[in-house]
Structures are given as C-alpha cells and as structure tokens.
Write a protein that binds this DNA or RNA. Structure first.
Length: 738
DNA sequence: TATAACGTCTAA
DNA sequence: TTAGACGTTATA
C-alpha cells in the first residue's frame, strides 16, 4: 500500500483508513480498508505526506498535501497550566470521573502556539527544522520548517527555489505560512488553526460572524493598514522597500523580531469609512506595489486603531518597524482581510503575552519596545528614534482630544464602579447586536497569561530607567482609568504596566451604550475582579464569552440588562463569583431564577454536580424583579453564603418571604447580614419579628415600605438592644451600631 | 503501550 | 451552527 502512496494507521478496532493521492490528477481517493494486517511502527516518523501520501482528508480539500497534526508547544502559559477540573472537557475526562468520550484538552490548557510535531521534516530535503542551530535571524527563518496552510507542505524556506513570489507568514501559528507557490498562484486556503480553536470559537460570545465580502478587495490596502503590522516571529520578513516617511532602522534590530505582541486594532465598524488619500493611491498600485502598500500601510497601523483617520494613533510610529532590505527573505506578513482584523486582535492581547513568556523561557532576546495592546505605538521608542512623548506620533492617535482607548473603553461617562442601589431611570434600549459589519473570524481568546512584565523602563540610549516597575506602579495607582489609558499610549513598557490587573480590579462600563468586541478584549486583558455591565446592551454571547475568560471574577453587575443576556450565567461557570447584581433585569422572574440557580444540566454519570452555579455568591441584588417566594426558597436552599440580599422594589415580596428567609433550618437565617426591602409594599411590621431570628443581621432597609411603621422599627430596636444594638440611621433603615 | 488530545464528522 | 463523538496522531 505504501508503494502506492498510501499512508496507513492502525485503528484500535482494526479499522483502517487510508487515503491515497493521485499525484498526476491531484485528486485524493479515500480508501477505507478493514484490515488488521498493517501496523504502523510506533514512533516512526511518518514521512511528510506530500502529494504521494496522505492521511484521511476531507474530500473537498484542495490541498496538495496532508496536514500534520500539531501538538502542544509545552511552553506557553496554557500548556504550563494544570487542568482546571471544572471545564466541560475536564469533566469528560476519566480522571475527573467523566466518560472520556470527548477527548479534548482542558479549556484552560489549550495551547496558544501549537507546534509542528518533532517528527515533521522538510518535504524537499527530508530534514527537520534547524533554526535552533543557527544564530542569524535570517538563517533561522530559512532553515525552520514552515507549513503551508493551503497546500500543507512543510518545507524549509531555503529549500524552495521560488524567487519571484513570497511566502506569507501567518503569525497566528508558529511555523505556518502560505508558501510562495500557493501565494504566487493566488490560492487561498482555510486558515489553519491551533488546538482549541474549534472549541474556543464555539464558546458563546465568540463574536463570530460571516464577513460580507463587499469592500474586502477594494479595501485590501486599508485592511492591511488597519492591521498593526508587527512581527511576532523572526521569520516574518518583508522585502518591500520602505515608504518614504520611514526612517532607517539599524539592521541589528531585526534580531529583536521575535514573536512580539501586536496592538489591537479596531474592528471594521470603528474604522473610518473614508479611506485616506494615500490609501486610494495605494489601491491603484496594489498589484505591483502590493508589498509597498502593505509596508507603507504598516506604518499607519496605529492609526488603524482608531475609527477614523484623525482618530488614529500615530501614523508614523510603526512605519519604520518593519522595513527590511531587499535582500531579506521573501516572506511577508499576511495581508489580512477586514474580517480577520478584530479576531486577530482579540486574541493578540492575550496571546502575545503568552508568547513573550515562551520566549523568555527560551532565553531569547528580551522583547524591546513593542506595542502589545490596542492602542500602543509600535516601535516608537527605538525604531523611530522618537521619545515617549513624541507628539509626532501621538497626534494622529487622538480624536477630538480623546485617546483611543478611552473612547472605546469608556464610550459613556466614566463612573465609579457603583454598588449603588439607585433606582434606574429608564431601561436602556433593547440590546443591540454588535454592528453587523463587525465581522470576526473564529478565533480563540484564551485566558490571559501570567507573564512578567519588564521590571524597568528601557530608555532610548539602551539603558534602563532607575525606577523599578513597582515604583511606577505605585504612581499609576493614583491615576484614574482614563489617565491610565493615556499613559498606556506612551510606550510599550508603560502600556504593559498600566494594564496591570491591579490597576483594573474594577471595570465599570455601566450604561455604556454599546459593548464592542474590542472592549471585551480589553476587559479580558485586564482581568478585573469586579465588572459592571449594568444597563448595557451586552448580548448573551458576549457575556458568556467574557465569563468564560474571567475565571477570577468576583463581582458582576448586570443590572438592567436583558434576561437574554443574563441567561449566559445559566451555562457559564463562575465559581468565584461573590457578588451578582441582576437588578431590574427585564424578564427575570421565578422561572429564570430557577434556571440561574439550578445545577449544571450536564450531569452525566460520574459527573454529578448538584451544586448551584452561584453557590458562592454572598451578595445578591434582585431589586425590581418580579420574583416570588418560589425564588426565595431556591435562594435559601442554594446560596448558603448569602449575606447581602437586595429585594427592594420587588412587589411580590411580603412577610411570608421574610419568614422564608429567616426560617429555622435555612442557611440565610444565619448568613444574612444585610437585607434591602425598601419599597416592598407588601412587607409589614410583622417582618421585623422574623428578623429577630437572624443571628448576623446588621442592616435592614425598610425605607419606603408603606406598611412598615417607624414605631415598629423602634420597638425592634428596643427588643434587640439586649443582644444587638440597632439604631435608625434613616427612617425605617435599621443598622447595627458597632 | 499508554495517554493525551487534534481534527474531522455528524446528528441535533 | 454547534455539541458531541471518536478515529487517529503525537509523545512519553
């Protein structure tokens, strides 16, 4: 069979699937054989399946070679994690008592940079990658294995004898490109994804939509321009002559072109619909001058961060970052279509940090000044010779004087993360989907890495600033989020430091009219402990997406959101959540509360988990909901840690409800410390009698309860004074005094 | 050989 | 479109 170009493999049950490719026709004939005769030698490096051999592939695959399965890099943050034991896939694992059918990696361990198997060899010379043996970056690139995402061939760029076309390096995946042959032939292929892409992209809120092809072509250059072009790999090359406004960069800096973070770009809808004049010119030249266009566009990458040209970050800062001499290896960064932009950036904010970690682990050259976030100026410090405050770069990044990140992170008035109980004024408009033109590819967004940021600020002269990071951090701690956003634009290091999650423990997007994908990625990057999304139009997908990526979230405020969105909590796990605010959630009634508090539905044998998803919530805000005692019974039963409960404006709450909460045998009886029953018109003086049972009660808010009298409150105080001193701080607001 | 899990298929 | 299943590959 091998003689005839079959590859084969042993199936556990003796079933054998082999696929043969007919080289002349380029067609692959799938043959399924039921035999147990052939055994593939264990550990034998399987010859790279070129045109003559292939594993089973989809019949419609147009590729000329078989894909090699990638495997973990074992270095990235995700790979270094241990299994969470709680995710869907962990629960499937036998080690966690599951049936083991799904055979998937823990969702927290999905490798960020899956690598080619070490058995992979060049299809031409049959040798493995040799980049580790080489010093020069160019050599490294030429002698590393590159897998084409279209034809699947794995080659050393050096082994290709193609001189008139360049490969397009895919910086999403190590050792992946569109090879010169395919690129030159104009082929397009489905982008190869790493492990976890499937599942991560399927997670709710993955923001995946189909891209309308319109404008793609015409916008090719601007698309490229939008993409902040930066090398993440040393193999990324561009032979394009640099644009006229670029300044030369010392060649030595190429050595710094290790995988590097890239700034986030704005999603298409936030980009200017009006191309800049130079863009139009570039479009005209795009055939022969495509590289030049891309190159020049790269220089505008930061500008692409903004929704309009005048809003964009520096237009020059990145220009000089990528230029290479014409002798450089002929591989360029992939020209991205608009629908890829956002997804790339969504992941980049996380992934690049992981990659940095990997590189650091490999004792590679430490990263220099590289933007790594949505609004950072690429290479500003070193590459352009500019200074942190170089206004040349900063000016274009502002729109109406507002920094980019602020405009997107704080579309509305900045408010402190409120835990207020103020009555809502009006419900926000019905949740709107993100703009339809936000076209995002399936793209994994993984939890952020724990990646050590630089400890000192690199200066232009190559030295380090005397102050250590923690000193700066202390200073940054005094800044508002708005100010932090401004600081993040100064340089890469500040960008990194200012994004420290210690500075963003609370993120408040209350009443933000539109939650955009970019904002979501910004949230993920900052990993807040408290997130206020009250009165926003966040969708279920978005919320679910967020929750799945904020494993440490303690406080979640969803006041005034739709039940459609809040229902994301039914399927997502947030075990550390301590405070949940679902006040005034439209459509949240008893039935929905039941869903919210019910155990996970996926209770297979061995996976029984009858615990409430919100079992650790201590602070629950249910003001303004049409819930009844039915919900309260569930709360009593499921939320053993509940200490603060807001039932204000709940018209169905009455004395019996209070009786339930304080009944013997309930956990709330002992755990409840603070209860808000203000404007609960069915609550009467009698409820105060029930509260005497509560051992921990510290505050009882009965303000504006028509049927509660001040006399009864005073009587309560008098009767409780023997054990617990209370006082009336306001009319019908009882507070423990001590 | 055992284990992990990638990548594809398919039913819902 | 998506969740689930599982054949099969990669690695120890």
């Amino acid at each position: 069979l091998q003689q005839f170009g079959f590859s084969n493999s042993c199936h556990r049950r003796g079933k054998r699937v082999a696929t043969v490719t007919s080289p002349p026709a380029g067609r692959r004939l799938a043959v399924t054989l039921y035999t147990s005769v052939m055994q593939r030698a264990a550990n034998r490096p399987k010859p790279k399946a070129g045109p003559s051999a292939a594993v089973k592939l989809p019949s419609n695959r147009s590729a000329s070679g078989a894909r090699r399965r990638r495997t973990r890099c074992r270095k990235c943050e995700a790979c270094l994690r241990t299994e969470c034991g709680e995710c869907h896939f962990c629960k499937d694992m036998k080690k966690f008592g599951g049936p083991g059918r799904m055979k998937q990696s823990c969702i927290m361990r999905q490798c960020i940079a899956p690598v080619l198997p070490h058995t992979a060899v060049c299809v031409v010379c049959k040798e493995a990658g040799k980049e580790d043996t080489l010093e020069d970056e160019e050599d490294k690139f030429n002698f590393m294995l590159m897998e084409c995402s279209i034809c699947n061939e794995i080659v050393h760029p050096h082994c290709l004898k193609v001189s008139d076309a360049s490969g397009v390096v895919n910086d999403e995946l190590p050792n992946c490109w569109e090879c010169p042959k395919c690129n030159h032939a104009g082929k397009s292929g489905k982008q190869k994804r790493g492990p976890g892409f499937k599942y991560a992209s399927n997670l709710p809120g993955s923001l995946l939509r189909e891209q309308k092809p319109a404008k793609e072509e015409g916008d090719a250059t601007s698309a490229a321009r939008r993409r902040p072009e930066r090398d993440e790999t040393p193999r990324s090359r561009d032979e394009t002559p640099r644009s006229r406004d670029e300044t030369p960069r010392p060649r030595g800096e190429d050595a710094l072109q290790r995988p590097q973070p890239q700034p986030l770009t704005l999603p298409p809808p936030l980009l200017s619909p009006r191309p800049r004049p130079e863009d139009k010119l570039r479009k005209k030249r795009k055939s022969a001058l495509l590289h030049a266009c891309v190159r020049a566009a790269v220089g505008d990458s930061d500008q692409s961060l903004c929704s309009s040209p005048q809003a964009g970050p520096s237009s020059e800062g990145g220009s000089e970052t990528q230029e290479k001499g014409p002798s450089r290896p002929k591989a360029r960064r992939k020209r991205r279509l608009p629908n890829r932009e956002l997804s790339r950036e969504l992941s980049r904010a996380l992934n690049t940090q992981i990659q940095e970690t990997c590189l650091a682990n490999e004792n590679r050259q430490p990263l220099k000044v590289e933007p790594e976030t949505e609004n950072e100026e690429p290479h500003r410090l070193f590459r352009s010779g500019g200074e942190p405050g170089d206004q040349r770069h900063l000016k274009p990044r502002e729109m109406n004087g507002t920094p980019w990140e602020l405009r997107h992170f704080y579309p509305g008035p900045i408010t402190p993360l409120g835990f207020n109980r103020s009555m809502p004024t009006n419900r926000p408009p019905p949740p709107l989907s993100p703009p339809k033109c936000v076209q995002v590819e399936r793209h994994v967004i993984r939890p952020p890495p724990i990646c050590p940021p630089p400890d000192r600020l690199p200066l232009r002269d190559g030295k380090m600033h005397v102050a250590q990071r923690e000193v700066w951090m202390t200073t940054f701690g005094f800044l508002t989020h708005r100010e932090l956003c401004v600081c993040m634009r100064v340089c890469k290091t500040w960008n990194r430091w200012c994004c420290d999650k210690r500075l963003w423990t609370k993120i408040d997007l209350n009443r933000c009219t539109s939650i955009t994908p970019l904002m979501l990625s910004g949230i993920i990057r900052r990993q807040p402990l408290a997130l206020d999304l009250s009165w926003t139009n966040i969708s279920k997908k978005q919320l679910s997406w967020l929750i799945n990526r904020l494993p440490g979230l303690r406080v979640l405020r969803l006041s005034g959101c739709s039940w459609a969105a809040v229902s994301a909590l039914c399927t997502s796990s947030c075990p550390l959540l301590r405070s949940l605010d679902v006040q005034w959630v439209e459509g949240l009634k008893d039935a929905q509360m039941r869903d919210l508090l019910s155990p996970p539905t996926d209770n297979r044998p061995g996976q029984l988990d009858n615990r409430c998803k919100l079992r650790n919530v201590q602070d629950l805000r249910l003001a303004g909901l049409d819930i009844t005692d039915t919900s309260l019974r569930l709360i009593c039963r499921q939320m053993a840690s509940l200490s603060t409960l807001d039932l204000s404006y709940c018209n169905h709450i009455n004395d019996q409800s209070v009786n339930l909460l304080t009944a013997a045998g309930t956990t709330t009886r002992d755990s409840l410390m603070d209860i808000n029953l203000s404007v609960c018109n069915r609550v009467t003086d009698h409820s105060l009698t029930f509260f005497k049972r509560c051992g921990s009660i510290c505050q009882i808010d009965l303000r504006f309860c028509k049927q509660v009298t001040r006399t009864a409150c005073e009587r309560f105080i008098a009767e409780m004074s023997v054990s617990v001193p209370f006082r009336l701080t306001e009319d019908k607001l009882l507070q423990k005094t001590c």
